[in-house]
Simulated scan of single mutants.
Amino acid sequence: MPESRVHSRRHLLLGGAAVSTGALLTACTSNEPKDQKPATNAGPAADDKPGAPVTIGFAGPQADHGWLNAINENAKRRAEKYSDVTLEITEGSNDTAAQIGQVQTLINKRVDVLVVLPADGKALTQVGLQAMKAGIPVVNLDRIFASPQAYRCWIGGDNYGMGLNAGRFIGEKLKDKKDATVVELAGMDSLELTRQRTQGFDDALKNYPNIRKVARQAAEFTVESGQAKMAQLLQAQSKFDALWNHDDDQGVGALRAIAQAGRKGFLMVGGAGAKSAMDAIKADDGVLKATVLYPPTMAASAIDLARALGQKKGVGGMAELEIPASITLYSAVVTKENVDDYLPTGFS
Rank of each mutant, 00 (worst) to 15 (best):
T86C: 04
T194M: 01
G310N: 06
Q260C: 09
D304F: 10
I258N: 07
V269S: 00
A79E: 05
C28M: 10
T105R: 10
R10D: 15
G135T: 05
N159M: 13
H11Q: 07
K173W: 03
H11L: 06
E32K: 06
A332M: 14
P33A: 09
R5W: 11
Y208R: 01
A134I: 01
S147Q: 02
E184Y: 09
V333R: 08
E320C: 04
V269K: 02
K312Y: 09
L124H: 06
E3P: 00
A308G: 10
T86Q: 13
L234G: 11
A45F: 00
G161S: 15
G262F: 02
G128S: 04
L117Y: 06
K282F: 14
T86F: 03
T194D: 04
W67D: 00
A219K: 00
L233H: 10
G135V: 06
D35Q: 12
L243D: 15
A236D: 09
A257W: 10
I323F: 06
G265P: 12
D248S: 10
E322N: 11
T55A: 11
V223N: 12
D64L: 13
P61K: 02
A228Y: 04
A17V: 13
A134Y: 00
D285H: 11
F240P: 01
D304Y: 15
E80M: 12
L14K: 02
W67P: 00
I281D: 09
L141N: 00
A146I: 05
S8A: 12
V127N: 04
L114C: 06
A204Q: 15
S348M: 05
V113W: 08
K282Q: 15
T90K: 15
G262T: 01
L68D: 12
N165P: 07
D176L: 10
D202C: 15
T55M: 06
Y342W: 07
N41I: 13
G15S: 08
G101M: 12
D285S: 13
K206F: 14
K34P: 01
N165H: 14
E322R: 08
A302D: 10
E88H: 11
G66E: 03
Q102P: 01
V333S: 09
L14V: 03
V223W: 13
K264I: 03
T125D: 02
L14Y: 02
V339L: 14
A272E: 07
D203C: 11
T297N: 05
V103S: 01
I170W: 03
G317W: 04
L329R: 14
M230Y: 02
R10G: 10
N74L: 15
